[in-house]
Design a protein around this nucleic acid. Structure first.
Lengths: 203, 203
DNA sequence: TAGATTGTTAATCGATTAACAATC
DNA sequence: TAGATTGTTAATCGATTAACAATC
């Protein structure tokens, strides 16, 4: 199969979110023009994306909401469990630790870490904040492959180095720092301000 | 001038961030291949982007760090003050209220709001949490055009409606909900899990 | 000079949009 | 039936990459 582009995956995730809402409202069918209007996009794009994972659209009525939702979940592997540790127990780390929607995507938080003594031992969402010294052990025991990096920028690179030594494969980077990492490590840089700038540029 | 694509703006913001680091380290010149390696991209892309705002590259040495940084700032209007209110004083709202980097981009937080009595009056980063009933007044007085939405998903749409009535033009949506808004309102949907999924898909 | 780099054009690549027959 | 929608191909559009002369 041809490799999926990031954009397709992102769009499928958006459809999936809308479909969850429709399921909740008890709507049985939804058409590509309907989805397109919600997302302000082209309806043939929607159909093309959906065809990647779902072959049962019905003329005149559209797609069966529950079936399509399930097919997107399978296609994107949303039900597969992915274990992650959160490093940095500041407000952002706490916010992500409490983020209920992660579990809809199979993302399971296996630990929450900080090097600040005053934070260690705090309990958030049933999880206790551990010291950085326990990082290796927890990553090893839980087989977590993902690290969510929410530390202050000045320590971002050094913490990333530690994570890589502890065998983390994916770093979800919420700091504004561009990390230097070996090629085999995937970094998802959550460039907040960069994402937002295009919206206010020139307006 | 032709309209800039989002991608170009995002890349310029990334160069800008790297240039800040170089300024701090006292590096005077940086070349397009150097920047390209850091960001794992093509060097001719870097040159093309830079040419949009800076015409003084030097053969053999590259670009003057300080000058290029300044030119990107002017080009993207980073020094122009943009006023925003944060609605939702949970962990994420607090994290963003404390986010020091916003001011590098001219984003000024003019207020922090919540409808939870126990949060109203709390002080964060020199700012006091106000009740939602004060939203209209503060938006009017500060002329804030931007709202950063960090409320729970179930109230996201109704709070967005309030914001639009209060004359907000841009909504930076950190909830997982796709908002329905009139055409003249710009929504930047910070689709966290959607951004991350492409990185772990199939791996 | 030799070699590294910019500025710039041309070629390629991929993503989006338009169009429409087939379907119910 | 008439009309709305899917599935799918073709056309368009835009973004990325390759290539290289000019520069210092």
């Amino acid at each position: 199969m041809t490799k999926l582009s990031s954009k397709v995956i992102q769009r499928l995730a958006l459809y999936h979110g809308l479909l969850s809402d429709y399921v909740e409202k008890g709507v049985a069918f939804v058409s590509s023009p309907q989805l397109a209007v919600m997302l302000k996009m082209d309806d043939s794009q929607v159909r093309k994306d959906i065809l990647l994972c779902h072959k049962q659209g019905k003329s005149k009525v559209g797609y069966a909401v529950a079936d399509l939702k399930r097919d997107i979940e399978r296609f994107l592997g949303l039900k597969k469990t992915k274990r992650a540790v959160i490093v940095g127990a500041g407000n952002l780390g706490f916010a992500l630790a409490k983020y209920a929607d992660f579990k809809d995507y199979g993302l399971e938080i296996a630990g929450l870490f900080d090097d600040d003594e005053s934070k260690i031992g705090q309990v958030i969402n049933g999880m206790t904040v551990s010291g950085i010294q326990d990082l290796d052990k927890v990553i090893y025991e839980t087989e977590a492959q993902i690290a969510i990096l929410t530390v202050p920028r000045r320590v971002a690179q050094s913490v990333a180095d530690k994570l890589i030594k502890a065998n983390i494969r994916f770093i979800w980077n919420f700091t504004p720092t561009v990390l230097s990492v070996p090629d085999e490590i995937d970094v998802c840089h959550e460039n907040l301000m960069g994402n937002f700038l295009p919206f206010i540029y020139d307006k």
